[in-house]
């Protein structure tokens, strides 16, 4: 390729990527500037692309209402509880599928677990509601969502952990047996440290899903327990939408997952490349 052609292609590529970044960040930009606008400014017929006046009082207003803060706490409890449970169960199941496929039900069972993620969630929305209603933990409780989200997160955790365990050489465990470790100790001492980066990335994925979930939360909880995802729409009231408060609250709700992502991005990349990068 000639020098000019190379420059042209490179230029076009950069222009395309620039456009892409712009499209991706535009809603985010809109969210941020709206969060700092006054209610009056959000309702102008000709929208402003930069707040005429910065209005940080929006954030104060959000925290002035205790229910908003407790919604964040509820979301945190549910997301964390579900993540711990999903990763714990997924690790055990993934290990069994990776090391003892015949005894653990083979490829078919492993695939069936994954296939639980393939149906449209809304299809089970109502059956699940009635099912949970008759369970000891009922609905409108932490436990209801912590257990419900297992339907989505445990298959993911099981499948990913299975892949990570398959990548961890079995011979290392066998060497540990010969060193004198029981299978249980060998698992904790040798294998678990090897899959730890994978476990962290699986945890992030599970946590972010549970944190962001709206559809089921909207139906299952709402009185005793409220997640922030069902609080945000309440800023849309009969005659008007409080865009500035809605955006301010969602901006606050974005902080935990974004922080998590930035802090642990090293593991995320490894987790998402699914065993392509070997430890």
């Amino acid at each position: 390729m000639s020098e000019t052609n190379y420059k042209l292609v490179r230029g076009l590529l950069l222009a395309f990527l620039g456009l892409w970044v712009l499209l991706t960040l535009a809603p985010f930009y809109w969210q941020i500037i709206t969060a700092f606008k006054s209610a009056a400014e959000t309702n102008l017929t000709v929208p402003t692309f930069w707040p005429r006046e910065f209005f940080p009082e929006n954030f104060v207003a959000i925290f002035a209402e205790p229910a908003n803060f407790s919604a964040l706490v509820d979301s945190f409890i549910i997301a964390t509880g579900n993540t711990v449970l999903s990763v714990f169960l997924g690790t055990l199941a993934g290990y069994a599928f990776a090391r003892f496929p015949a005894q653990a039900g083979g490829e078919n069972l492993a695939f069936w677990i994954l296939s639980n993620r393939m149906f449209p969630p809304v299809a089970i929305l109502l059956p699940m509601f009635f099912l949970f209603d008759s369970m000891p933990w009922g609905t409108d409780s932490y436990m209801s969502l912590i257990i419900l989200y297992l339907v989505f997160n445990m298959p993911l955790a099981t499948w990913l952990m299975m892949v990570f365990f398959r990548d961890a050489p079995r011979e290392l465990e066998e060497a540990a047996y010969l060193d004198g470790y029981t299978p249980f100790k060998a698992f904790f001492k040798i294998t678990l440290p090897l899959v730890l980066p994978g476990m962290i990335s699986v945890s992030i994925l599970c946590w972010i899903f549970a944190w962001n979930e709206y559809l089921f939360a909207n139906l299952f909880v709402g009185t005793a327990v409220k997640t922030f995802t069902i609080v945000i729409p309440t800023f849309t009231q009969g005659s008007q939408t409080l865009w500035n408060l809605q955006m301010a609250f969602s901006l606050i709700a974005m902080i935990p997952p974004v922080t998590l992502f930035i802090l642990l991005r090293r593991y995320m990349v490894r987790g998402l490349s699914l065993g392509v990068v070997k430890g």
Partner: peptide, 12 residues
């Protein structure tokens, strides 16, 4: 005690 063909050293 056994040595493995792949050495099986604990990488971590």
């Amino acid at each position: 005690a056994m040595t493995f063909e792949s050495y099986a050293l604990y990488p971590n």
